[in-house]
């Protein structure tokens, strides 16, 4: 969910689809993995550190790779982001080998029982944390001046720049903010899932599906559709087969595109 919220933010403000968002998540997960290995810091506690590193890194990324793209046609954006995907994936492969890694924390694998339903603590934390993160982001966007600037830039960059908003800075900030969101995602996912160099694509696609379902720039929609996709996947996965579950989710997505060619809240 945090992946889709981050991706949504970037698309809303920059009209650029960051196809390498999933790779940023992968990077974040490796960062928190290594923090755990070297300092023994719990992935949950190292979230701020990971966020800060991703934030700083994406400032550079934005300056040298993404910003020049705004003037270029769509194909160039695709080429650049696929290039970035290659760089991240293979850089990770080179540095950290293709092994699957994860962090095991005792209390995460335990579960608590509410109303005779067993809920694993790790997943509970993940759900709560991503909702909180999405909500905080929502508040930032709605209630603060920066949020106002971001929304203005997203609605009409030209008008926003005429009102004296430094849209370059806002774009930079948005991109970095969305990468920092990946840090949160990384911290809560590491105790639950494995991290490996080629994990990113999958999350990017899931996130694309979710934001298209929920409507671009629409946070409540994003959160709701995260649940819809998650539940569909779990149901089909449990009753039929896990691979078919993903296929079904993607087919549903294609159909929704037919009905709403540019997403549910499309222009």
């Amino acid at each position: 969910m945090t992946v889709s919220v981050g991706l949504n933010l970037v698309y809303g403000v920059m009209r650029i689809v960051n196809y390498s968002q999933g790779e940023l998540l992968m990077l974040g997960m490796y960062l928190s993995y290594w923090t755990f290995v070297f300092t023994g810091l719990d992935p949950y506690i190292s979230i701020p550190v990971v966020c800060a590193i991703l934030f700083a890194m994406s400032l550079l990324l934005h300056k040298y790779a993404v910003e020049p793209l705004l003037k270029l046609p769509y194909e160039c954006q695709v080429v650049t982001f696929v290039g970035l995907i290659y760089i991240f994936q293979n850089g990770a492969l080179l540095l950290w080998s293709p092994n699957y890694r994860s962090v095991i924390i005792d209390f995460v694998s335990k579960s608590i029982t509410i109303l005779s339903v067993n809920i694993p603590i790790g997943r509970l934390i993940a759900t709560l944390a991503s909702i909180t993160a999405a909500f905080v982001l929502y508040l930032i966007l709605k209630k603060t001046t920066i949020g106002l600037f971001i929304r203005a830039t997203s609605q009409d960059p030209t008008a926003a720049s005429m009102m004296g908003i430094d849209i370059k800075k806002i774009r930079l900030l948005t991109f970095a903010l969305s990468s920092a969101m990946m840090g949160i995602g990384a911290g809560i996912m590491l105790p639950l899932y494995y991290v490996f160099p080629f994990m990113g694509n999958f999350y990017t696609i899931i996130a694309l599906i979710i934001i298209t379902l929920g409507g671009l720039g629409n946070f409540i929609g994003t959160i709701l559709s995260s649940f819809v996709i998650g539940i569909t996947e779990a149901m089909v996965g449990t009753y039929i087969s896990p691979e078919i579950a993903l296929a079904v989710a993607f087919v549903v997505f294609i159909f929704i595109l037919f009905v709403r060619p540019s997403g549910i809240m499309g222009e």
Binding site: Y86, I87, N90, L94
Partner: peptide, 9 residues
């Protein structure tokens, strides 16, 4: 192993 594709990127 990753270098060829990295350079390609």
């Amino acid at each position: 192993v990753g270098v060829p594709m990295l350079l390609y990127g």
